[in-house]
Amino acid sequence: MRLQYSPNVKIIMVPCTGRVDILHLLKAFEDGADGVYVAGCMEGDCHYLTGNLKARRRVEYVQKVLESMGVEPERVAMYNMSAADGPRFVQVAEEFKSKIQELGPSPFIKPKDQAA
């Protein structure tokens, strides 16, 4: 399969979503991301048993952090999908991209920074 997905999505690979830390999610925003999502295995299918469940809780934590700053919590999300399901990967990428486009650019990076 050679499926196309939006070039707006930048992939950072980790061995397991259990490796994704709260700090990584926050750093992504600091580095200018408009939104961040974690694509983990289906729940119950984690090779390390609970990595994807832990990732979900961390995503939820960051959602609360964003909310407490007055930023849309939907800018960070957790998705579960099978590694064999390419079309689902593309569908999620497109879905999240549209959602973030609707929300608009990152509230952390001001236009003047972008111009500079």
Partner: peptide, 14 residues
């Protein structure tokens, strides 16, 4: 410490 620093930086950037 890292999480608080990143959070404060983001909140102030906003």
């Amino acid at each position: 410490v890292g999480i608080l620093a990143a959070t404060l930086r983001l909140a102030r950037l906003k």
